[in-house]
Computed example of a mutant assay.
Amino acid sequence: MMNTLLLNLNEVQSLLTIEDTVEAVKAGYMAFNRGVVQMPPVVSLMAHKFNGEMDFKMGYSEQEDIIGIKMAGGYWDNPKKYNLPSGLAMICLFDAANGVPICILDGTLITGYRTAAAGTIGALCLARKDAENIAMIGTGMQARLQVMALSKYFNIKNVRVYGIEGQEKYVEEMQSQHPDIHFSATSAQEAVENAEIVITATASHNALVYDQWVKPGTHINAIGCDMEGKQELDPSIFMRAKIVNDSRMECKKRGDTQHPFKAGHITDDNIHAEIGEILLGQKCGRENENEITIFDATGLSVQDINTSLFVYRKAIKNNVGKNIEVFDVNI
């Protein structure tokens, strides 16, 4: 028999830290830009009558000889209707040498952490080092994780949050978790105008951050836009910003970059770099304190693969999880 390790959410949570995730995602970005990752286009299915979507992200890390697939759902009525998170995910890892599934694990926390890690990496490469004021556009779980992750690497003093709903609850919960940071509910304009780092983490299909609000020196992490039609940023911002993508191909199709690209405001030549190129030292990050920078991140399967592989290896080392017998090798 060949064993497959099962890891539930609590087991994943016991094994994973945001700092470990940042390192795993960094390695994944660099592997992608070294050309040792195969990533087919993302497959998305819409469940309109349930206000939901399912994304299937897959990839092959030739560096690790691991194939991974993540099935991730975004069901925005879940918290009210089913007392479930709006984001649910499962990840499967396969041995690339033989196709055997070596691990099946809950991907909800991994998705949250790897997305927060992406924002942190974008800020480390592109934000001013003295950034201390954050504009958080969004009030969901990812809006919480983005701030949590950033606070490990930046001396954050103020977070101004804007959301269609849940602002007061966000402020109350985050203030209790991060007593050294001052949280306040404001308008989107007030939040952006007073920020060195702007984070968007919503499911919006319309611009929420406008060009005239963005001051010189601002860095923007565009996190929520990951499907055709979604939008969080005014396309005009891109015309005066240094644009960095996680993947040019995916961001032009699914990220906020799609809108200025389709409008003819920018071309391929205006996309400065992919984040892995900056991490590898092939392209520069922030060059001065007055630059406006944008990191547009749609999410790459290699982030999930690398983070899941870290969790799997740590689980094996610490004897965590349950083994099941999937294949009888005598068949």
Results as ranks from 00 to 15, higher is better:
E190W: 01
C125D: 08
T115P: 02
L309G: 01
I220A: 06
I66M: 09
V42H: 08
M141P: 04
W213I: 03
F154D: 00
V147D: 05
K215I: 06
S236Y: 13
A143E: 07
S247I: 08
V159E: 13
G87A: 11
Q177P: 04
A24C: 13
D130V: 06
E228I: 06
K157F: 03
Q177S: 12
V43E: 00
R128Q: 09
Q258H: 09
V25Y: 10
N318S: 12
K80F: 08
H182W: 07
D77H: 12
S301E: 03
M239W: 02
M227F: 05
V244E: 07
V198W: 08
V244L: 08
Q146P: 06
R286H: 12
Y113I: 07
E173A: 04
S308D: 10
H48I: 07
N158F: 12
I121M: 08
T307W: 06
T200K: 07
I331W: 01
N3R: 13
H219N: 07
E64A: 04
T307V: 12
Q13M: 03
F261W: 15
I18K: 06
P85I: 07
M39P: 05
G285P: 05
A127I: 10
K169T: 10
N98K: 15
T202D: 11
K26V: 00
M174W: 06
A297V: 12
L208V: 13
I324N: 00
A263K: 15
G87L: 13
A127P: 04
I294K: 04
A135Y: 02
V171H: 10
C92T: 15
R114K: 15
H265C: 01
L84E: 07
V42R: 15
P235T: 12
E196L: 11
A135V: 06
E289N: 15
P40I: 12
Y170H: 01
D304C: 09
A31K: 12
M148F: 13
K70Q: 08
I275M: 11
T120N: 08
V244I: 13
I220L: 09
K129G: 02
K262A: 13
G163F: 11
L300F: 08
E250P: 00
I305R: 02
P260G: 05
D268L: 01
A149R: 07
L88C: 01
E277K: 15
D268E: 04
P179N: 08
L15T: 11
E132S: 14
R128V: 07
N318Q: 14
V159F: 11
A123I: 08
D211I: 03
E64W: 06
C92I: 13
F50A: 11
E291L: 05
I324A: 05
D226I: 07
L105R: 03
I137K: 02
D328I: 03
L109P: 02
D95Q: 04
L124I: 02
H178Q: 12
E168Y: 05
K49N: 15
N306M: 12
Y210L: 13
N323R: 07
P85N: 05
F310D: 00
Y312V: 02
K230G: 09
R144L: 03
V159C: 09
A135T: 01
T120H: 09
L88G: 00
A191H: 10
A97K: 10
D328E: 09
G35E: 15
Y29H: 11
P179A: 12
